[in-house]
Write a protein that binds this DNA or RNA. Structure first.
Lengths: 378, 378
DNA sequence: GTACAAAATCTAAGCGCTTAGAAAGACTAA
DNA sequence: TTAGTCTTTCTAAGCGCTTAGATTTTGTAC
């Protein structure tokens, strides 16, 4: 790689000062057309590429937004060849021979795209639309402690998923650049938040189970910890209460184990008494439940109805297709960017909390019938 | 937002020089433990976040890799509320009411994750694994011409999809940082390339159609332009030639129109004579073909078999599920990062071309039977 | 040709960090 | 005590760019 070409080189070749070179790129209209042409020619000839670091340092903005995402670490491991089964790793066959196979069990499609990926995608779209670059980072084993500051230092605004960063680090970063958390706001903090109607969504899907499918004996599985999941449980309680059914105090939180491919899945005790419906805190939990019930030969939705929450892509693929509460993930990502942009423009604007609506998507696992012609779109 | 805290502030508060502050973060082992503690305390108290721009400028590396992706522009538009149908935009219902609906036709799931998204995902995983941040950009309407240099200037290495950047721009950037193109290499250029066995893959899937399903009258649809698609057509020809069937000179490239949601889809003339099998240049084309055949009431795979190429997620969801040639997209993303890292470490290393193997994935659209229990994984 | 305003360009001072190499301290051995 | 050796810290010189404000050029009106 050749030594980096700088404004100085371009200026010399064009016979102007470095200020003029800079002006030519930042505010072309202030430079005489003929000069502009000369400078561009010089830049082209020298293959000049301006250094964003220098610019960022000089004008105090980077032109990028950041996303600090979680669970990547886990997925790095899961994506590594796990030995066994097709689809687990890189094909060792000689390149000249093309492997041919039926599609078998493949957990990987359950790992991408996930909830976080779709939100990220929304951010990508919005960033591009507004001329920002998107910088993606996450907790890394290479420099576990540095990364936070590292990524925070190179963007003008940062989005984080809950529980990716210690509160102290967040506060620290939020003191320097705008930060929005993709999560329910706790009682109070200095951050902006983008969240959804977790409670209302779960209430609605639970009521659907009760009123449209006549289920009276329902349980809620998973999710004791994150605020969102607690809110969802409340929605479940709301629905039972309104229907005058028995209201449990706590969700059922089954233990988890690690599957062959490194994913952690929930477990249900063998003698588990089956309810008429299982409302799950997340799609991920629901998919596990579906697996377990299939293993035991339980008819879903005939004997037990199952629902999820999130609306991840895998829920459409599974049979029976998963009825769920879909979060508007793309829009959430866009909202994140929107808030960030606002606060970058006006640093004094106070943190903002934006709650987006959800929608219940009826598929097969609740007992609704599939709709024909899904793919006749256009 | 408070005024930015710098090394100077931390140094003053800790009673040391800025060099010591810097050392404390970059090479902690060279600083006396007690000093280190004092500096950290000061940094914490002041909420110091180091500026990556300054660091990048000073040491000449940014610690980030870039991906210049395409078609985002198109997708930004497609994602905008298109007016009509559920799922087209943001739900206008009042936040307190949760919408409940059956899942209807929804083209959006065909837009994400796409081929590029999965490669990007592979890059994300690899970047995180090696302590790099990933910077994502693409052609933007905001500053169409600037962006290239903009993103090139802030990363240590760049990946690009074909036809995202004019060759001249690529050469320019490649003169400053390592660049790898995710595409078949043209006769020669100064870039590294990551690609797959396009020709062999198509040959294999075509031979499957011929030998396992007895199809003798096959056509190839789509893809005249990009090098990859041309290579795939060659593979198609190879298979026909080997089977002593009539070998067409050119692929069929149908005109395209724009659908209601802004996506562009191919069209087949009404009186189109049906072959026994349609080998498509990409999954995207294959999904269009499936739509068209469904519209006309043609039995797939009974009357006509259809295959794709890529292995995008939507191909599993569609009915009949799409038989295709799957590219190892995650691995490709990882290979990209791998090459980039190598060339960053050793700038004199010559550009590298890496071809990864593909695999034929048999699903329903070729006439193979679905396999039971896909979801009983774990 | 002169006076003055507007346009174009330049000079110079940072932006916040890293890192040689110099200086100062702390120990050790004689 | 003194010289010699590490270890720790500091001084100072950039890194490549932006941008006030100064200076020069150009254009206009008389």
């Amino acid at each position: 790689m050749a030594k980096a070409v700088t404004v100085y080189d371009v200026a010399k070749r064009a016979g102007v000062s470095i200020a003029t070179v800079s002006m030519t790129f930042r505010r072309p209209e202030r430079v005489k057309a003929s000069t502009r042409e000369i400078v561009h020619a010089a830049a082209r000839a020298l293959r000049y590429v301006p250094s964003a670091s220098a610019r960022g340092l000089a004008d105090g903005r980077t032109g990028a937004l950041g996303l600090f995402s979680y669970d990547y670490l886990v997925r790095v491991e899961a994506a590594a060849p796990a030995g066994g089964g097709p689809g687990a790793g890189v094909d060792p066959a000689p390149p000249s021979t093309v492997a041919v196979e039926r599609e078998g069990p493949d957990e990987r499609c359950r790992e991408f795209p996930l909830y976080v990926d779709e939100i990220q995608h929304g951010m990508e779209l919005a960033c591009l639309e507004h001329g920002y670059a998107l910088m993606i980072g996450g907790p890394s084993h290479v420099s576990p402690s540095t990364t936070i500051a590292d990524i925070a230092g190179r963007v003008d605004g940062l989005a984080v998923f809950p529980q990716t960063l210690p509160t102290e680090a967040l506060e620290r970063i939020a003191g320097r650049i705008p930060v929005v958390a993709v999560s329910e706001p706790p009682c109070d903090d200095r951050l902006s938040h983008v969240t959804v109607d977790n409670r209302g969504g779960t209430r609605a899907i639970t009521e659907h189970l009760i009123h449209e499918h006549g289920r009276r004996n329902l349980i809620f599985v998973g999710g004791l910890n994150p605020a969102e999941q607690r809110a969802r449980f409340s929605g479940f309680q709301d629905a039972l209460r309104a229907a005058r059914l028995r209201v449990p105090r706590k969700p059922l939180v089954p233990p988890t184990r690690v599957t062959g491919t490194g994913r952690s899945a929930i477990e249900l005790p063998a003698g588990f008494p089956l309810p008429e419906a299982i409302v799950c805190a997340t799609d991920d939990v629901a998919l596990d439940v579906l697996d377990i019930l299939a293993d035991r030969g339980v008819d879903v939705p005939g004997r037990v109805a199952v629902t999820g929450f999130d609306g991840i892509a895998a829920g459409r693929i599974v049979r029976p297709a998963l009825t769920t509460v879909r979060q508007p993930m793309i829009e959430m990502g866009q909202a994140v960017v929107d808030i960030l942009r606002g606060r970058i423009e006006d640093p004094d604007r106070p943190p903002e909390v934006r709650e987006l609506p959800v929608r219940v998507v009826l598929r097969e696992s609740c007992g609704c019938r599939p709709r024909a012609g899904i793919w006749r779109a256009g």
